[in-house]
Amino acid sequence: MQVRLEYDFRAQGIRLTSGVEWLDINGDGKFDLTPGSGETLRARGSAAVFEAGDLTLQMQSVDLKNNRFVLRAVPRTADHRIHLSIGSVLPDFEFTDSGGTRRHLSDLKGRFILLDFWATWCVPCMEDLPVLKKVYAEFHGKGFEILGMNGDETPEKPERVIRTMGIQWQQARFDRDLLQNRFQISQWPTMILLDEHRTILSIGEMSHLPLDGEHLPGSLRTVTGESP
């Protein structure tokens, strides 16, 4: 099994409680870098937890001198991450909307739901917003919903953008635990397309159903069965 660990030059070593960890779970000789991949995780406070078949594994120790590492099996309950794999059901989660009200993903009712992880400091995210407006106008009446998952640590800027651009879909305020620990979002923007049962249809891979602004309309027409 191949393992890659981020070296902390300040600490002059590997810190298992922080940094990125890679684990070649499927043994194909490379690390899966796609958003939501279970092979690339960031440790936050404790070593990252990987799902490998029926095992839940966590790095226990690293010996750089002898190039050895020790993994240990931990209870499955130690994994708080939301796994993103096509065909799996996304668990329900709670969030605070832009008005300060606590809500759940399951409150959104639609044939298709797009989770858009965006932030005002992310240039591609901002470039996608006008396209999302057009897509929302075209498909909302056909059961399409968007939930914006904002990455700004303070709400002032995103709320100003929402007002200025006339964005009508629901927004979730920044939640560090939800974005960084549970979803493990490291690429902005990241988009996830769900069906009415919260089954993951796409995580935006170009080889499958791309969800960026340029390709999103075509991908939605594909899943809705509409002609291009």
Rank of each mutant, 00 (worst) to 15 (best):
V70K: 12
G151R: 09
F144P: 00
L132F: 06
S106A: 11
R72K: 10
L64S: 04
S88I: 09
F144Y: 00
E127F: 10
K133A: 03
K142V: 01
L108Q: 06
H104S: 09
I82N: 06
S106H: 05
G100H: 03
F69S: 07
R103W: 03
V135R: 03
E138W: 02
V135S: 02
S88F: 04
P130Y: 08
D79L: 13
N67H: 11
G87H: 04
R111T: 00
G100S: 06
N66K: 14
L71E: 09
E145R: 15
S98V: 12
F112M: 06
E145L: 09
M126Q: 11
D128S: 15
G143N: 00
R81A: 08
R111D: 08
W121F: 15
I146Y: 02
L129G: 14
K134A: 06
D92W: 05
D92Q: 11
A73E: 06
E138D: 06
D152L: 15
A119Q: 07
R102E: 04
D128L: 12
N150Y: 08
L90Y: 02
V135Q: 01
D97T: 09
G100R: 08
W118R: 13
K134H: 02
E94V: 15
R76Y: 02
D92L: 10
N67V: 07
L84P: 10
L129P: 15
N66M: 08
L71I: 09
R102S: 10
F144S: 01
A78G: 10
V70I: 10
N66H: 14
V89S: 11
G151Y: 06
S98L: 09
D107H: 15
L90F: 04
L129T: 13
T77P: 00
K142Q: 05
W121L: 15
T101E: 11
M126A: 13
L132N: 03
A78P: 06
L71A: 14
R102V: 00
D116R: 15
V74R: 06
D63K: 12
V70D: 11
K142I: 00
A73C: 00
